[in-house]
């Protein structure tokens, strides 16, 4: 297939594809953050960490 002029090298992704990948990574990081916050609240409540 003729090369897509939107492709950007060196990775060859188009900007649209890059933004799509990046959005998944951002969402994943947010989920990780929420889980971490919940874990820290549980530890703070149930251990002598914060007294």
């Amino acid at each position: 297939m003729a090369d897509d002029p939107d492709k950007v090298w060196p990775t060859g992704l188009t900007l649209k594809e890059a933004e799509e990948v990046h959005s998944y990574i951002i969402d994943g990081t947010r989920v990780f953050g929420v889980i971490a916050i919940i874990a820290h609240l549980l530890v703070a409540a149930s251990t002598p960490w914060l007294g």
């Binding site: 990775t11 992704l13 900007l15 990948v21």
Partner: peptide, 20 residues
């Protein structure tokens, strides 16, 4: 946000496993 442009430089097959 223009951070997404990093994937024009770093291949996701390399960057994502590295990041995780």
């Amino acid at each position: 946000m223009n951070n997404a442009k990093m994937w024009l430089v770093v291949k996701p097959t390399v960057g994502i496993p590295l990041f995780l």
